[in-house]
């Protein structure tokens, strides 16, 4: 299916739907390359950025996307609004609509929160990360970045290394790449890469890094979070680095010139050896740029082209 009235996750987006977004994002990338990267496509529209979790990258990326399309963005950070006073998500979305917002971009710590906001059908909802469930625009920008590098997607292999269990990026990206014909391998400590991850995401699970990297055209390293260590899911940083940390030597197991992705921010020296980021294969900066183009495409398609919500 094509992009509908909302973008909550990638469940409803088939290969053609993803391709439509990527193609539109290419046009947006062209606009971003102009001296004055701005078009009036969404002039007069207001996009509410509703962030219940701290995030500078994603929020700024959406803000730039709004700006480039001529839309106004309004940030409602959890710490500065009635969100802390216990107003329910449903009421907050209603308020956003009442304030004249034409779309809501939602970042929320609970999985399924975007779906809940979307069920109100008051205005288009774009999921900017819900709990550990989905981060669809991140996945689309990853696919966009890789398609640009290789000129194709089908037949490639993506290996994702890290804490798959707690990663909405891994979930969405694995699904998006698999849908585009990319073979996906999931790798990391067994405590956070359980067997059910395979069938859930249409991927192969492999706990040995060298084996998982074999044949990989794209390697995605995930951010390792300290609190997972505290909860006993991950051993020490030293243990992680020794078994699943990526460095130039390990990466040699992958295809020559394999692209390296990271959703950021990077823990240098834990999941990635610092020198890797300076190699041409590292696409981290391209990912950031692609993020604005992809978010422009999604905003434009939902607000201007979509059947839209009531």
């Amino acid at each position: 299916m094509a992009l509908g009235a909302h973008l909550c996750d990638l469940d409803d987006l088939d290969a053609q739907g993803i391709t439509d977004v990527l193609d539109t994002a290419e046009s947006m990338a062209e606009i971003l390359a102009r001296p004055i990267p701005r078009v009036p496509a969404l002039r007069g529209r207001t996009v509410m950025l509703l962030f219940y979790e701290a995030s500078t990258r994603t929020r700024h990326s959406f803000e730039l996307a709004c700006k480039a399309l001529g839309a106004d963005s309004l940030s409602l950070a959890a710490a500065t609004s009635s969100v802390v006073k216990g107003e329910s998500l449903i009421d907050t979305v209603r308020t956003a609509r009442a304030l004249g917002a034409d779309a809501v971009v939602l970042r929320h710590p609970a999985s399924g929160a975007a779906r809940l906001a979307a069920t109100l059908n008051l205005l288009p909802v774009i999921n900017a990360g819900d709990g550990i469930h989905a981060h669809p625009t991140q996945a689309l920008l990853d696919v966009f970045t890789v398609r640009r590098r290789f000129g194709r997607l089908a037949g490639l292999q993506l290996t994702i290394v890290g804490d798959i269990l707690h990663s909405r990026v891994a979930r969405s990206s694995a699904l998006a790449f698999a849908r585009m014909g990319v073979k996906v391998v999931l790798c990391g400590p067994p405590t956070v890469v359980p067997p059910e991850a395979g069938p859930a995401l249409g991927a192969r699970v492999c706990h040995d890094l060298t084996e998982a990297l074999r044949g990989a055209d794209v390697v995605m390293a995930l951010r390792i979070q300290k609190e997972r260590q505290d909860r006993g899911l991950l051993p020490s940083a030293a243990e992680y680095r020794a078994l699943w940390g990526l460095d130039a030597g390990r990466l040699a197991a992958a295809c020559p010139g394999a692209v390296l992705l990271h959703p950021g921010p990077v823990n240098r020296g834990v999941e990635l050896a610092p020198e890797l980021l300076d190699r041409p294969e590292a696409a981290v900066d391209s990912q950031v740029r692609a993020g604005v183009a992809v978010r422009m495409a999604v905003l434009y398609m939902l607000l201007e082209q979509g059947a839209g919500a009531a």
């Binding site: 709990g131 469930h133 269990l165 979930r171 059910e196 991850a197 859930a200």
Partner: peptide, 11 residues
């Protein structure tokens, strides 16, 4: 229930 569905849903 813990299984591939809970994994996919992020619950």
């Amino acid at each position: 229930h813990e299984g591939s569905r809970s994994f996919a849903m992020g619950l």
